[in-house]
Design a protein around this nucleic acid. Structure first.
Length: 326
DNA sequence: AGAAGGCCCTAT
DNA sequence: ATAGGGCCTTCT
C-alpha cells in the first residue's frame, strides 16, 4: 500500500473514532454545548492571576514565568467543590507532612521535603544564577501530597505551569510523563490531556480519554531502546494499573484532577504549557479500537464537576487567520 | 531495594 | 527527526 493510502486510512479511522466518541458522550448526555466566553483577557483579572502565579518559591526560569497566560482564573476562591471525602486537611492539620516514609532515599534525591527543611536549603541561597549547585535534580519543593482526591489546597482552577515538572511539584499531577496518576485500589488522582491520542474528543465540559500501555518502550533485544513513548504494538488492557485506576474511578465517582497541555488539539487547550482545569468524574470505561493496526485501547468518558469556573475557549479559526498575517 | 512504565524535555 | 536521559510512581 502506498503511503498516501495509509494516511487516508488513518484519517478515515481517526474521523470514525471521533464520531464514535462523540456519539458515546452524547449517549451519556455529556454533549451539552458550553457557552463561549471571550478569549480576550480581562486586564484586571490578569493582574490577579499573575499575583497567584507568583507564589511558588523556586522559579527555574523567570522568563517562562512571565510568559503570556492563556487562561485567567475568574475566581481564585475554591469553595465551589469540596475535596470529596478524604480528610486530608484534618489529618494533616498544623503540620507539613514528609510523605516519604521510612526507606527514604538520600536527601539529595528525596522527593518530598518539608518546606522548612534546613538541609533542603543547604545554606546556599537559591538565587538561580547557578541553578545546578544544589538539588540539581529537583525543580522545586513539594509541600502538598499529590496522592489525594479533589483540589490541591492553594491551587486554583486555571493555574498554569510551563512544564509537567512544575505541575508535579505543585502536586496537581505527580507523574512527569505518564498521563494517568493513581492505582487500581483507590482510583485515579489526576490525568493529563496532551493530545497523545488524536481520536479523543474534547468538549471542555466533557471529553474522552485513552488509556496507556501496549507500547514497546524498550525496543527489541537486537535494537534496545529507552523510550517514554512509542507506537502501539499490542492491545491495551484494564490489567494495566493506570487503566485499572481510571476504571476504578468510574465506579467510585471520586473526582479526578485534570490538566490540559499545549499539545492537545482542542479549543480548550492552552497555547503553551499546562493548565489546571479542575475536577472531573469518570462516567464510563470501555474498550475500543485505537488508531494503530486496529489494536484495542481502553477508553473513558469524563464529565466536569459542576460549579467550577468556566473553561476558557480559544477561537482557533481566528488564530489561524492571524497566523497568516505574519 | 530494584525494575519497569510512562500523552516529557532538551540537546544533537 | 531522534537519541538519550531525569523524574515520579507502581509493582515485584
Amino acid at each position: 500500500m502506498t503511503a498516501d493510502l495509509q494516511e487516508l486510512d488513518y484519517e478515515q479511522q481517526r474521523l470514525q473514532n471521533i464520531r464514535d466518541n462523540q456519539a458515546l458522550l452524547l449517549s451519556l448526555g455529556l454533549s451539552t454545548p458550553t457557552k463561549l466566553i471571550p478569549s480576550k483577557p480581562n486586564t484586571s483579572l490578569r493582574k490577579k492571576a499573575n499575583l497567584n502565579a507568583r507564589r511558588r518559591t523556586l522559579e527555574p526560569s523567570e522568563e517562562k514565568q512571565n510568559r503570556r497566560r492563556s487562561y485567567v482564573s475568574q475566581n481564585a476562591d475554591n469553595d465551589s467543590v469540596s475535596d470529596n471525602g478524604l480528610r486530608r486537611s484534618a489529618r494533616n492539620q498544623g503540620r507539613v507532612l514528609n510523605y516519604a516514609r521510612e526507606n527514604s532515599p538520600p536527601a539529595w534525591k528525596r522527593t518530598y521535603k518539608y518546606e522548612s527543611d534546613s538541609d533542603a536549603a543547604g545554606g546556599e541561597s537559591d538565587d538561580g544564577m547557578d541553578g545546578r549547585q544544589r538539588n540539581a535534580k529537583r525543580m522545586g519543593v513539594r509541600t502538598q501530597n499529590p496522592k489525594t482526591f479533589g483540589h490541591i489546597s492553594g491551587v486554583e482552577v486555571g493555574r498554569w505551569w510551563a512544564s509537567r515538572m512544575e505541575a508535579s511539584t505543585d502536586a496537581v499531577h505527580a507523574p512527569t510523563v505518564a498521563g494517568i496518576s493513581g492505582n487500581a485500589t483507590v482510583g485515579a488522582y489526576s490525568v493529563a490531556l496532551s493530545g497523545g491520542y488524536p481520536d479523543d474528543v474534547d468538549l471542555g465540559e466533557a471529553f474522552t480519554y485513552t488509556g496507556s500501555g501496549g507500547r514497546d518502550l524498550k525496543g527489541t533485544k537486537q535494537n534496545p531502546k529507552n523510550l517514554r513513548t512509542a507506537p502501539q504494538t499490542s492491545d491495551q488492557t484494564f490489567e494495566n494499573s493506570l487503566n485499572a485506576a481510571l476504571k476504578r474511578s468510574a465506579e467510585t465517582k471520586k473526582p479526578v484532577r485534570v490538566i490540559r497541555g499545549f499539545k492537545l488539539q482542542s479549543p480548550y487547550a492552552p497555547t503553551e504549557g499546562y493548565r489546571y482545569d479542575g475536577l472531573y468524574t469518570v462516567e464510563k470505561a470501555w474498550m475500543g479500537t485505537g488508531l494503530t493496526n486496529g489494536l484495542l485501547v481502553c477508553r473513558y468518558a469524563f464529565k466536569r464537576v459542576r460549579g467550577q469556573d468556566p473553561l476558557p475557549v480559544r477561537d482557533l479559526e481566528r488564530e489561524r487567520m492571524e497566523m497568516e498575517e505574519e
